[in-house]
Amino acid sequence: MKTLILSTAIVALTAGAALAQDVVRMGTEGAYPPYNFLNDKGEVDGFERELGDELCKRAELTCEWVTNEWDSIIPNLVSGNYDTIIAGMSITDERKQVIDFTENYTQPDPSAFVAMADASVDLSGAVIAAQAATIQASYVASELPGATLLEFATPEESIAAVRSGEADAVLADKAYLDPIVAEGGDLAFTGENVLIGGGVGMGVRQSDTELRDKFTAAIQSMKADGTLNALIAKWEIGEQF
């Protein structure tokens, strides 16, 4: 009898390590407005904060927010330091080999090039800055053979590189660049927008299928009743569903 109870307990545990716990830890970067950033109080804020809180409510989970550097955000998920990545991470085949994604909660977001307003840039042979380990960085490396890729640890540094003349242009999510271009004055969009990736989704460990399905269900319910579209409009994330 005892072994029977034990083995059912193990089945419950293997079904989803995160679900057996009371708290789901949400990992984010906290440096990518409007998706996620730290507000003046030092708390995680932004589109994904509001979205994540709502998703947890609908999935009846208690959630907790953690920040982690972008560089090591996947390794730390895989080794179990938090249970989800909700950090403006686009769904790509390369990442899918390592982690699972929920259904996307944004449309495939256009990435855009930004250069100095007074410069005319030939993108095919330019020096292009991007955040390391992003879809934009691999896009420049593989799709723009004439361009020189300049990688930075944070998105902030890639913008600074354009201002300083280090790079001719920066490639990043359009939603991230919009407020910077609007307020900076010295920067302007250039070239055509490019569509990379399959929209942004939440990353979970491949072994956590039940958690993934719960969040996917919650995302679907937010899509159905229009609350997701309202959030996307509020934070100016891009196309609605």
Partner: peptide, 18 residues
């Protein structure tokens, strides 16, 4: 499990509900 490092919930450090 593939790329994942999965131990039982009781072995997690710190415990998941900490």
């Amino acid at each position: 499990q593939g790329n994942d490092f999965v131990v039982c919930a009781a072995a997690k450090l710190p415990l998941g509900n900490a």
